[in-house]
Amino acid sequence: AFSSEQLARLKREFNENRYLTERRRQQLSSELGLNEAQIKIWFQNKRA
């Protein structure tokens, strides 16, 4: 489960760009304390 802070950040990123570069995913992973797979799957689900 994502914290409300993490979700807000993911939604902001998604609004700016529906697709993440690998580098951006790595940055978000480290900033949010999530693993890259969690972020990747969140974006895939959000696009679906």
Rank of each mutant, 00 (worst) to 15 (best):
2 F>Y: 07
2 F>I: 10
2 F>C: 04
3 S>E: 03
3 S>Q: 04
3 S>R: 04
4 S>K: 13
4 S>Y: 11
4 S>E: 14
4 S>L: 12
5 E>T: 08
5 E>D: 09
5 E>H: 10
6 Q>S: 04
7 L>I: 11
7 L>S: 04
7 L>N: 05
8 A>D: 11
8 A>P: 00
8 A>T: 08
10 L>C: 03
11 K>D: 15
11 K>N: 15
12 R>L: 10
12 R>G: 05
12 R>H: 11
13 E>Y: 05
13 E>A: 12
13 E>S: 05
14 F>A: 03
14 F>C: 05
15 N>R: 12
15 N>F: 09
15 N>Q: 13
16 E>Q: 12
16 E>P: 01
17 N>W: 05
17 N>H: 09
17 N>S: 09
17 N>K: 05
18 R>T: 06
18 R>I: 08
20 L>G: 02
20 L>C: 06
21 T>F: 03
21 T>H: 04
22 E>N: 13
22 E>S: 13
22 E>H: 13
22 E>W: 09
22 E>L: 11
24 R>F: 05
24 R>M: 09
25 R>P: 02
26 Q>E: 08
26 Q>H: 09
27 Q>A: 10
27 Q>D: 08
27 Q>V: 10
28 L>C: 02
28 L>A: 00
28 L>W: 01
28 L>Y: 00
29 S>K: 03
29 S>V: 08
30 S>D: 10
30 S>E: 14
31 E>Y: 04
32 L>K: 00
33 G>Y: 04
33 G>K: 07
33 G>H: 06
33 G>L: 05
34 L>S: 02
35 N>Y: 06
35 N>Q: 11
36 E>S: 07
36 E>M: 06
36 E>Q: 07
36 E>F: 05
37 A>P: 04
37 A>S: 12
37 A>H: 13
38 Q>I: 14
38 Q>G: 03
39 I>A: 01
39 I>C: 02
40 K>D: 15
40 K>Y: 13
40 K>L: 15
42 W>I: 03
42 W>F: 07
44 Q>F: 09
45 N>W: 14
45 N>D: 09
45 N>R: 11
46 K>M: 15
47 R>M: 13
47 R>H: 09
48 A>P: 04
48 A>H: 11
